[in-house]
Deep mutational scan, measured.
Amino acid sequence: MQFKLIINGKTLKGEITLEAVDAAEAEKKFKQYANDNGIDGEWTYDDATKTFTVTE
């Protein structure tokens, strides 16, 4: 399945997509990506659109 991450950071904004088996795997990958890029914020997930959002 394809999942999307919307980044609303203080210095980094944008979207990325990835393939994952389920939402838990996608969340783990997205949070690792955010951590690697210094993004720390409030996370939400919309199951209907398979979209994660992180807002700093």
Rank of each mutant, 00 (worst) to 15 (best):
M1C: 04
M1S: 06
M1K: 13
M1P: 13
M1E: 15
Q2R: 14
Q2G: 09
Q2M: 14
Q2W: 13
Q2I: 04
F3V: 02
F3E: 00
F3W: 15
F3Q: 00
F3H: 03
F3Y: 04
F3M: 02
F3A: 01
K4V: 06
K4S: 08
K4E: 04
K4F: 06
L5Q: 00
L5Y: 01
L5A: 03
L5F: 05
L5T: 01
L5E: 00
I6T: 07
I6M: 04
I6L: 11
I6K: 09
I6G: 02
I7W: 14
I7M: 10
I7N: 01
I7S: 02
I7A: 02
N8I: 09
N8H: 10
N8R: 11
N8L: 14
G9L: 14
G9I: 07
G9C: 03
G9R: 06
G9F: 12
G9E: 03
G9W: 05
K10H: 11
K10S: 04
K10E: 05
T11P: 05
T11M: 08
T11N: 10
T11F: 05
T11D: 04
L12T: 08
L12W: 15
K13S: 06
K13P: 12
G14R: 15
G14A: 15
G14T: 10
G14P: 04
E15I: 07
E15K: 07
E15G: 10
E15D: 11
I16G: 02
I16H: 12
I16E: 08
I16T: 14
T17Q: 07
T17M: 11
T17H: 13
T17R: 07
T17I: 10
L18C: 04
E19A: 08
E19I: 05
E19M: 12
E19Q: 13
E19D: 06
E19S: 09
A20F: 15
A20V: 06
A20C: 04
A20W: 03
A20R: 02
V21S: 14
V21W: 08
D22M: 05
D22I: 03
D22S: 15
D22N: 12
D22T: 14
D22C: 03
D22V: 05
D22H: 14
A23D: 05
A23I: 12
A23V: 13
A23W: 12
A23L: 06
A23Q: 15
A23P: 13
A23C: 04
A24V: 06
A24C: 13
E25A: 11
E25N: 09
E25K: 05
E25P: 01
E25C: 03
A26H: 00
A26R: 00
A26K: 00
A26D: 00
A26V: 03
E27F: 10
E27H: 09
E27G: 05
E27I: 10
E27V: 11
K28S: 11
K28P: 03
K28T: 11
K28H: 06
K28W: 12
K29Q: 10
K29Y: 11
F30T: 02
F30E: 00
F30L: 10
K31M: 09
K31T: 07
K31N: 07
K31G: 04
Q32N: 15
Q32W: 04
Q32V: 12
Q32I: 14
Q32K: 15
Q32L: 14
Y33K: 03
Y33W: 14
Y33S: 02
Y33D: 02
Y33F: 05
Y33G: 02
A34L: 08
A34E: 01
A34Y: 02
N35I: 14
N35W: 14
N35H: 09
N35L: 14
N35C: 04
N35Q: 10
N35S: 06
D36E: 10
D36F: 10
D36N: 08
D36W: 07
D36R: 06
N37G: 05
N37P: 01
N37M: 14
N37A: 12
N37Q: 12
N37I: 12
N37E: 07
N37R: 12
N37S: 09
G38T: 06
G38I: 05
G38H: 07
G38N: 10
G38S: 09
G38Q: 13
G38A: 13
I39R: 01
I39L: 10
I39Q: 02
I39A: 03
I39D: 01
D40R: 13
D40Y: 13
D40H: 14
G41W: 08
G41I: 02
G41S: 01
G41K: 01
G41V: 02
G41Y: 02
G41R: 01
E42W: 09
E42T: 14
E42A: 12
E42M: 06
E42F: 15
E42R: 15
W43V: 02
W43D: 00
W43Y: 03
W43F: 09
T44G: 15
T44L: 13
T44M: 13
T44P: 00
T44I: 07
Y45G: 00
Y45W: 10
Y45N: 01
D46N: 07
D46V: 14
D46Y: 10
D47W: 06
D47M: 11
D47P: 15
A48C: 05
A48W: 10
T49L: 13
T49W: 05
T49D: 15
T49E: 07
K50N: 13
K50T: 07
K50F: 09
K50G: 11
K50P: 01
K50S: 12
K50H: 11
K50M: 07
T51D: 02
T51V: 15
T51K: 04
T51G: 02
T51E: 11
F52K: 00
F52W: 07
F52C: 01
F52L: 02
F52Y: 13
T53D: 03
T53Q: 07
T53V: 10
T53N: 04
T53C: 04
T53L: 10
V54N: 01
V54F: 06
V54C: 03
V54A: 03
V54S: 01
V54H: 01
T55D: 13
T55E: 13
T55G: 11
T55S: 14
T55Y: 05
T55R: 14
E56K: 08
E56W: 09
